[in-house]
């Protein structure tokens, strides 16, 4: 018993004061890319040629589709002119699929609070049913981690529940395999209205590394209307948490330095 208490004392309080304070991320963390296509020599397609998911377009100004992006180092390493560099910006979630397309003059439109009529019902206590439909366990692990003492998701009124009947929404990971299509649809149908759908990770948004395989559906929005897109491969836990908090209005864009309530 003494040991138990001593250990408790030694382990200390480890919950991070997010969103009141900004998190400390690894120095080499790859967040939102910074694009400077004024540096691009004409005709150069070095980044396009190496991008594994064809997320980069140079038809017109250089853009990166963060819904496809794996945040891998390939494009920034291949670019001879530093036109693409990763920043450590971790807030990345958007409400619309098109808002994930990033350009030099096209900043991310970060997610806003869910519609007032739905927020009135769900916003103070959001219960989510998670379904992995071909996810590699990366996204799943970094969602699970939100339940640890470091993030303590419960303090925001957000909870992952076992039964879809108890859920306000569906959080989907994975490219949606053909073999999970029916189970995913059944889970969705079992959630009472109004319900929201959240797609986490490149797979759930666009198919990720498995895009266009005949065994996958290229993401959740081929089945449902998606209310929140959280990009990454996998997204950092803070990227996921930030997205969820934006959706329930606990973090708002444009109020000071992304001031939290």
């Amino acid at each position: 018993m003494a040991n138990l208490l001593l250990t408790r004392l030694r382990q200390g309080k480890r919950t991070l004061p997010f969103p009141a304070a900004e998190p400390t991320l690894p120095k080499r963390f790859r967040g939102a890319p910074i694009i400077d296509d004024s540096r691009c020599p004409s005709g150069c397609k070095a980044c396009v040629d190496v991008c594994p998911t064809d997320a980069i377009s140079t038809n017109g100004p250089l853009t990166i589709d963060l819904g496809r992006c794996l945040f891998c180092p390939e494009c920034s390493n291949a670019c001879p002119d530093n036109a693409i560099q990763y920043s450590r910006q971790y807030p990345l979630a958007t409400n619309d699929r098109d808002d994930l397309i990033l350009g030099a003059k096209q900043p991310l439109k970060l997610a806003h609070r869910m519609a007032e009529n739905i927020h009135r019902i769900l916003g103070r206590s959001l219960k989510l049913r998670q379904v992995s439909a071909g996810g590699c366990n990366g996204c799943e692990a970094d969602i699970n981690v939100l339940n640890t003492i470091v993030f303590d998701l419960g303090r925001f009124g957000i909870q992952f529940v076992a039964s879809p009947r108890h859920a306000d929404g569906l959080l989907i990971t994975g490219p949606v395999t053909m073999n999970m299509r029916l189970a995913l649809q059944t889970t969705y149908d079992a959630i009472p209205d109004p319900k929201i759908v959240i797609a986490v990770g490149a797979c759930a948004i666009s198919g990720g590394p498995f895009r266009d395989h005949q065994d996958v559906l290229n993401g959740a929005n081929n089945m449902f209307r998606v209310d929140l897109y959280i990009p990454g491969c996998p997204p950092h836990p803070f990227t996921i948490l930030d997205g969820l908090l934006r959706l329930i209005g606990r973090i708002e864009t444009g109020t000071g330095a992304e001031k939290s309530r």
Binding site: D49, V50, C51, P52, T53, L70, C72, E74, S132, A133, G134, G135, C136, G138, G174, P175, T177, M178, N179, M180, A183, C203, G208, P209, F210, H213, Q214, D215, V216, C233
Partner: peptide, 25 residues
């Protein structure tokens, strides 16, 4: 089998630019 994404057949003819990412996941 619910997680089957068809990785092995996608690797045939490779390695390509997506190969290492399919292996990572």
């Amino acid at each position: 089998g619910y997680q089957h994404r068809g990785v092995e057949s996608a690797l045939v003819g490779g390695p390509g630019k997506r190969t290492i990412h399919e292996i990572e996941t």
